[in-house]
């Protein structure tokens, strides 16, 4: 099990968290102007790197706040994290 460092509560078990997918996926500036393919790419297409990956987590069983973390998908080490204001 991962030990995930919540920026507020400190290190907690993975079971206390909800995964929120890739971080920093920007909402399209003008969604109406997108083609179906571009919209589908925004909705469904995500990076799947081996190595550092910025992702969102929610500490559902604790403070219930969202935060971003950079996880190394090869080693599961969490290298950085940031509070989402």
């Amino acid at each position: 099990m991962l030990l995930i460092p919540c920026p507020w509560c400190g290190p907690r078990d993975e079971a206390e968290f909800h995964y929120g997918g890739q971080a920093h996926v920007a909402y399209p500036e003008n969604p109406a102007a997108l083609s179906d393919e571009e919209w589908a790419r925004y909705l469904f297409f995500r990076d799947n790197p081996e190595g550092r990956f910025a992702e969102r987590w929610n500490h559902t069983a604790g403070c219930r706040r969202w935060f971003n973390a950079v996880r190394n998908t090869a080693t599961n080490e969490i290298e950085a994290r940031e509070v989402i204001a």
Binding site: C9, R12, A15, E16, A61, G62, C63
Partner: peptide
């Protein structure tokens, strides 16, 4: 104090 899980209960 802490919010956590005890025996799988919040």
């Amino acid at each position: 104090c802490a919010q956590t899980m005890l025996a799988r209960a919040l």
